[in-house]
Design a protein around this nucleic acid. Sequence first.
DNA 1: CCTGTAGCCGAACGCCTGTAGCGCTAAGAC
DNA 2: GTCTTAGCGCTACAGGCGTTCGGCTACAGG
Lengths: 211, 211
Amino acid sequence: MRIMDVRDAAPGGTRSRNRRGQGERLREEIIDAALRLLDELADDEALSLRAVAREIGIAATSVYIHFADRDSLVLAAMRRCHDDLVRAADEADAAHDDPVAKLRARVLVMGTWSHAHPGLYKVLHESTLSRRADTTFRLEIGERATAAVQRCMDAGLAPAGDAATVSLDLRAAVHGAVSMRVNLPDQPWPPLEHQIDRFLAKLVGVTVPAS
Amino acid sequence: MRIMDVRDAAPGGTRSRNRRGQGERLREEIIDAALRLLDELADDEALSLRAVAREIGIAATSVYIHFADRDSLVLAAMRRCHDDLVRAADEADAAHDDPVAKLRARVLVMGTWSHAHPGLYKVLHESTLSRRADTTFRLEIGERATAAVQRCMDAGLAPAGDAATVSLDLRAAVHGAVSMRVNLPDQPWPPLEHQIDRFLAKLVGVTVPAS
DNA sequence: CCTGTAGCCGAACGCCTGTAGCGCTAAGAC
DNA sequence: GTCTTAGCGCTACAGGCGTTCGGCTACAGG
């Protein structure tokens, strides 16, 4: 038997324990660290509980105080990641008045966010965790996009039609464009913004303001 | 020290050795097994050399006769997977005369193939192996699609324009639609064929024959 | 029949993983 | 000052992994 797993241990007493009633702080810190590592790894299955513990200098077993198992941690991280993305999209939407500008801003957020966090984009959209856990919360992004498309139609800024179908086509196209850039980052891709504007014009039928 | 790793061993002498000069047969068998497992796992990093060896009943070390390391094996599997997909697309293309029908058939192959092998689709398009190895061969699919779009334009069946840009938009849209279906297989997706026809009509501008 | 070697296997090393059980320590109530 | 308990750490188990080194064995050439 080997002596022990020295690598796991925190580097000593460098880390101070949370005050009573503040134990939930560690939970947030664990999720933060998990998100940092997930963005680097770009793979939910590759994230190890021990690496997360190492990242913030706690014992691996201390993670179990806040999460039942590894999958629960990954799921919680995904959920927060998703919530952040939805909030960013909502804020971009709220910054405009014109329904077309709102939709465009909402879509563009997917581009900027995926460029800033390609690893997390992969985890959120290509995660295999969905085989074992409930990740239906991921549909929220699509629902809000559909609502944005509907508002364009209602305002007469887009040809009337089935908003769900149009939105699905738009999301598929945008996701595909983003996915290609994320998965083949070394290719000389043309500007995503222009491609998104073409999708808005051709798939939704809105008139995009000249950029 | 533990006794040994009994699980690795072949189940006895059930497997007969290849004749002299036929050693390359095992190589093909290893790639076949790797592809089978990759389709199940849907993740190139999750494939273990030992699992491949187990699958065909050989010792793990025998893989090293034909592949330098695990990554080389995964890369060889990806390459064959890619070649199969390209060949399927070429055959579908060759089965038609009309340039539009050729392009449509080529694109539809991506749909049917991804439906038959969702795991391999993920490995081929979302693999993280590209960070370490050269996987530029994956661009071949796009190049052939661009040529198919160009032929539609040359025949006057699609509005003249930059074939590379139009093809990129089409591929992005189709890839996105497929990716969503592969990554969220439990959702009630509408028929992919109709969605592809909309992409052909709106993004390429061709008149799709009534289905 | 003898022998070289192609084709493959066994055992082991050293690493990493998730997780269980128990132990410690300091904060805060009394 | 005492005692409870929240908040965490330590050790260990039982596996998985890639990879190396040194064999064994049966077939082809002589």
